[in-house]
Write a protein that binds this DNA or RNA. Structure first.
Lengths: 136, 136
DNA sequence: CTTATATCTGAGCATATATTCAGATATACT
DNA sequence: AGTATATCTGAATATATGCTCAGATATAAG
């Protein structure tokens, strides 16, 4: 009945409530104040989480994930990308705009043609990781 | 002016159009048919992309990212999680439901209290990767 | 200069999603 | 039994998002 985790917590807060830093931020009840304090202490900062989530959101869309997968091998222009994933060039351009703004891809213009490529190796790793996760 | 990538493509399709496999799927114009064919050949399958995107979407939300970050150290119950990220317990429960359905977290019930934990190491890697990407 | 093409952009619509609110369920305590 | 608490759930609302459509921009070619 008493798990290791529970024992660990049990002898850490016998006092009324050790008053964590910034107790005013939390208005809801808590069962294990010390675990809450520890978790909150190591939680990434406000803006950091927001930025990371925004970055992940860019990759977390089927269309964009397909675009990025296609770009893993070589750079491609807009209409080629549209052909690869079977979507309108307008839609692709819209998505590429988001990816550009999020610094996930970069592009190079050659006359009328814009060639897009992955900007960061993190993206490749992230995609691989997600695809592996699915397979299991 | 002539990049390596362009030369690579230039001498690969001097013919009218080599007619890739499944040319019917693509109704839009394409400039480099051979690059399109190559990219399409290595593109992950339909359902695979959909699943991977769905998984990523679960992590790509500020609230859920905070929840998962908090769970990296130790398992936590719902109201503790609510206290950590400063959100209503109802909202947290809703999000945990999604994470549970997506097999990102698992939970263990001890009396009335439900302790949640990360289910997969992939999540930790993914979070670290995303947070690193932001820092640079 | 005029035409064609590759890409970009803004508006509009349809869908998805995150939170709140109210209430249901389940377990512990007396 | 009854009360209190921890969690869950459904409905509703507000916001975000992806695509299409129409048109703008820019460059190449005639």
């Amino acid at each position: 009945m008493t798990s290791p985790a529970e024992l660990e917590r049990a002898n850490a807060a016998p006092r009324p409530v050790p008053e964590n830093e910034r107790a005013d931020v939390c208005e809801v009840s808590m069962i294990h104040p010390e675990a809450v304090g520890a978790a909150r202490a190591t939680l990434p900062g406000e803006g950091r989480v927001e930025q990371a989530a925004a970055f992940l959101k860019l990759v977390a869309d089927p269309t964009r994930l397909r675009l990025l997968s296609a770009l893993q091998h070589s750079e491609l222009c807009v209409c080629d990308l549209a052909a690869v994933i079977g979507l309108s060039e307008s839609a692709v351009s819209h998505q590429l705009r988001l990816l550009r703004a999020g610094r996930v891809v970069s592009y190079r213009k050659e006359g009328r043609v814009a060639y897009y490529r992955l900007l960061d190796g993190h993206v490749t790793v992230l995609i691989q990781n997600a695809l592996e996760h699915v397979c299991e």
